[in-house]
Design a protein around this nucleic acid. Structure first.
Length: 533
RNA sequence: GCCCUCGUAGCUCAGGGGAUAGAGCAGUGGCCUCCGGAGCCAUGAGCGCAGGUUCGAAUCCUGCCGAGGGCGCCA
């Protein structure tokens, strides 16, 4: 690949110049085409090593590179304070096309993980009611991140932690019972319409706790599946109570001397590990606080041999992060292996009016309703448009629109158009020569080359997206690729009246490569790639 | 009061310490004998404020202002 060959060429040029120690070489795609196809700032960045004027150093570097006759490189120039810009022949883009066709679905997916075991915990909502729209961001982000890890060679486990023990579950069961008996729900109970609906379904002899638990979790799973989100593992909090692992965690903490008894309670000395106050583990009434099973849960995660733990939390739980990290550190684990990603809130609008979400607000939008209204693909794509660090505002009508202004439709349309051209190829009975026999140099239109340039960026985008845990970078790139393809589609007819068979052949291979890359990219974010819309 | 995230074009948002900060929508103006005009092209407008680090800052650091969220022996 071109990045590797250019990096290697610069490296050996630096060696030939006797630069010690050899600096890291950063190659980038300049924002402006006038600055060439590729650019390196190494003459600037290594000023501390060579101590020379960066432009003079760059001149020597260019001379070295020119003597190497690097493949595809047309010309080199020094620009600005000391950048070295590479201007490449279009032939490098034809290699990209060949790479895509050869690699198929594996194109642009670097093996960064080398099988590294990653646990992604997300959603983990209480099994006391349906998922609502507020859960969508975490669900979609967690799943897309998992897909991104998988696509880059990681061994991913998606896990849902079930808080199936404690006061909330008891309130929920009590509410079901009361509703079933025609009584009003307890003061701290659940009163949403779904409770009445489920209570009516509940058999008279059912245990409301167990029945409600199954009913609710089944519905959560069903809703998530409709979004294309499936979990490999459902981890029950109750399972730890029966198995004694909470007690083991407490014993472990005691032996490590990081707990203290005071005021009738057992406290974790979390201030020793960066927390701003110590936390109660066992209340004076003998009950655990909510953090105690969680400590045991995370102790279990480490014990299962994952080398990276990722927790996706909503912004309303961010205050919990410090004490959780303090707790795992108190257990002697490396807190750097635990990464907590916080998703900021999403404001849903309809006609400019905020649509309220929240179980207790009366008019909450169930996630299932959202999927009904806009569809799984549009929901996923829209929620992934932006990074999770920013609060997001989305309009339901815009999300559901079946027009090119809707980014999900725009990208899927590019794929569908590619498919329509390939269908036309069959319909016309066109006999396309093998790729090796195609003359790709006929792809000389700026539109054609722009498509190849966009395709060529996939590998770099994947590296950055997984490094930054940022699936939205894949989305941004997909939109650019789709834009390039639409431009090509508009200006370069594959079966035009005055298109020669040779040009048709080259363009068909370009269409094939585009279709493959679009489908692959959509797969990484979990959005379908229909052949027709 | 303390902690977290954010502040970029009229709106929704991209932006890897690099060169003249990008895209969509909205606005204005162009372009339809042919693969889907559900489109394509052009055009105006912007880094909250003030310092600092650096050859170079939207990006890193500090302070201020503004928005959202969080600070329990609740989960």
């Amino acid at each position: 690949m071109i990045r590797e060959s250019l990096t290697a060429a610069i490296g050996s040029a630096l060696d030939a110049m006797g630069l010690e120690p050899r600096p890291d070489v950063h190659l980038e795609r300049p924002a402006r085409r006038e600055h060439g196809d590729w650019s390196t700032n190494v003459a600037l960045a290594s000023k501390g090593i060579h101590g020379r004027n960066p432009r003079e150093f760059a001149a020597d570097l260019v001379a070295q590179l020119e003597s190497q006759n690097v493949a595809h490189v047309d010309s080199l120039e020094i620009a600005g304070p000391g950048f070295v810009n590479f201007r490449l022949a279009d032939t490098w883009l034809f290699d990209v096309l060949v790479d895509v066709i050869d690699a198929g679905d594996t194109y642009g997916k670097p093996d960064i993980g080398a099988g590294r075991k990653v646990l992604v915990e997300f959603v983990s909502s209480n099994p006391t009611g349906p998922l609502h729209a507020g859960h969508a961001r975490g669900a979609i982000y967690g799943d897309a991140l998992s897909r991104l890890f998988e696509a880059t060679g990681h061994d991913v486990t998606r896990e849902f932690y079930i808080n199936d023990r404690g006061v909330q579950m008891q309130n929920f069961a009590a509410s079901l019972s009361a509703m079933r008996a025609g009584e009003s729900v307890p003061a701290d109970g659940y009163a949403g319409p779904y409770v009445a609906k489920w209570a009516a379904e509940m058999p008279a002899d059912a245990d409301p706790f167990e029945w409600g638990y199954e009913r609710c979790l089944g519905y959560i799973d069903e809703t998530l599946r409709r979004l294309g989100v499936t979990f490999d593992s459902w981890f029950s909090e109750r399972s730890m109570v029966g198995g004694g692992s909470i007690e083991e965690a407490l014993t472990d903490l005691r032996e490590r001397g990081v707990v203290v008894e005071a005021e009738g309670a057992l406290w974790l000395r979390s201030t020793d590990f960066g927390d701003d106050k110590d936390r109660v583990l066992v209340k004076s009434d003998g009950e655990f606080t909510y953090i105690t099973p969680d400590i045991a849960y995370h102790r279990n995660k480490y014990a299962r041999g994952f080398s990276l733990l990722i927790n996706v939390f909503g912004a309303d739980h961010h205050g919990y992060v410090t004490r959780l990290r303090a707790a795992v550190e108190a257990l002697g684990h490396d807190p750097d292996e635990l990464e907590v990603r916080i998703t900021q809130m999403v404001r849903l609008e309809r006609d400019g009016e905020e649509v309220k979400i929240g179980k207790r607000s009366g008019v909450f939008i169930e996630l299932a309703d959202l999927i009904d209204e806009v569809g799984a693909d549009a929901t996923r794509f829209t929620y992934l448009l932006q990074g999770i660090d920013s609060q997001q505002t989305v309009d339901l009508a815009a999300m559901a629109a079946r027009s090119m202004e809707n980014p999900v439709y725009y990208v899927q349309m590019a794929h569908a158009r590619a498919c329509s051209i390939l269908r036309k190829e069959s319909a016309e009975g066109f006999r396309r020569p093998a790729l090796a026999d195609a003359d790709l140099t006929l792809l000389s239109d700026a539109r054609e080359l722009d498509v190849l340039r966009a395709i060529s960026e996939m590998n770099d985008v994947m590296i950055l997206a997984v490094r930054d845990r940022a699936p939205h970078k894949v989305i941004t790139w997909l939109r650019e690729l789709a834009a390039a393809f639409h431009g090509f589609f508009h200006d370069c007819y594959v079966f035009g009246n005055d298109t020669s068979p040779e040009v048709t052949t080259a363009r068909l291979w370009l269409v094939e490569a585009s279709r493959s890359t679009l489908a692959s990219g959509l797969g990484i974010v979990g959005v379908s790639a229909p052949e027709e819309l």
